[in-house]
Amino acid sequence: MTRYTDEDLLTYLNGDFDEDAAQSLEQAVGEDPELEQRLMGLDPLAAMVGQAFESVPRDADIAAISIPAAEPVVAPARFGGLRLVGTVAAMLVAGVVGYVISPPGPTPEPAPIGWKLQAALYQALYVPETVAAIPADSAAVSAQLASAEAALNRALPQDSLSDLPDLELKRAQILAFKGKPLIQLAYAKSDGTPFALCIFLRGEGKPDGPVNSEVLAGLSTASWSQGEFGYMLIGGQDDAFVTDVAGLLVEQL
């Protein structure tokens, strides 16, 4: 396969490749996501056009659009197994609870949602703006990690967790799944993509599991378990990146 230099890619972007060379590059990009990302990163028009449309539409332009209201769901007060922070999670929980109370007629009982899928559903609602809005504050992260350490009763070394390739640690949140702490460490990749490392206190007496890659809620994940804890790194659509970073975390945690 042809090795394309940045100069080659800029020549293509400038429209100076002949037709055959352009077709060869387009075929190569189709087979190589890394080449695709390099080419996209060099395209000067993207930022210019993106900025021109940044303020479009204004809130007033879309004020007339309404998302149809949800049908009301009654949740029982005694249900306390699942607790996530935020409106989004509350809506998800309401949905899950609604199903538990009154499953629709002939549909088989659904399989229980595990902590990983539930965390992935939550993470799927993150957009670059979610993590971009979190101010860089190392002291705040230290305090959040200290709370998370107390919840898990284990160390979470900030140095190691802040030293992941291309990922900036933005925040540590304490969530819970079925009454057990579920820590979400929110990261922003350099291109803005939100990522999270989730650590779940699954309890004792369960076998360790190696790193397993899968897509959950449309996001790449790598999960593994060791001792009392289950781990999941999640974010983006680059499976290889997630698996590579998970490999580093396995060594550090």
């Binding site: 998302i67 949800a70 049908e71 769901v73 989004v88 809506m91 998800l92 309401a94 949905g95 899950v96 609604g98 199903y99 538990v100 499953p103 629709p104 659904p110 399989a111 949602i113 899928l117 559903l121 799927a124 609602l125």
Partner: peptide, 13 residues
């Protein structure tokens, strides 16, 4: 595997 209500909430969000 997730309830239709959850999916509805997910799509809504």
């Amino acid at each position: 595997m997730v309830s239709s209500n959850s999916l509805d909430a997910l799509v809504r969000e």
